[in-house]
Amino acid sequence: MTPFLPRRSTLYLTFVALSLLVLAGLFMNGARRVAASGPRLAEERRQVRAYGLTDLVLFTDARYTRHPSMADRNAPFQDYPQALEHFPSGSLMPPPPHVRFHERR
């Protein structure tokens, strides 16, 4: 006797439904984490205010990527004229818009 096998479409649609359920669960978890992040964000804001910080700590290898908002356009190239920019983070972080604006001013 052939064992009962559900239709392929049933299996596939069940997989899609389960995946959507997992995704919804993850997004709900995200919403809960966002709601719970209040104290952490408040502490970060307190530090920014109290210490007078201007930037996030994303890269620490070069100063113009550690503090991109404080950098000037020459910073990556100031070892010598026409020096090549040699920090990997420099290739990931373009100059901020206001640096270009200041140059036009």
């Binding site: 952490r40 970060e44 210490y51 700590v57 994303l58 620490t60 550690r66």
Partner: peptide
């Protein structure tokens, strides 16, 4: 928790 602003300070 506040590493994003203070990790290297």
């Amino acid at each position: 928790d506040s590493s994003l602003v203070s990790a290297d300070l």
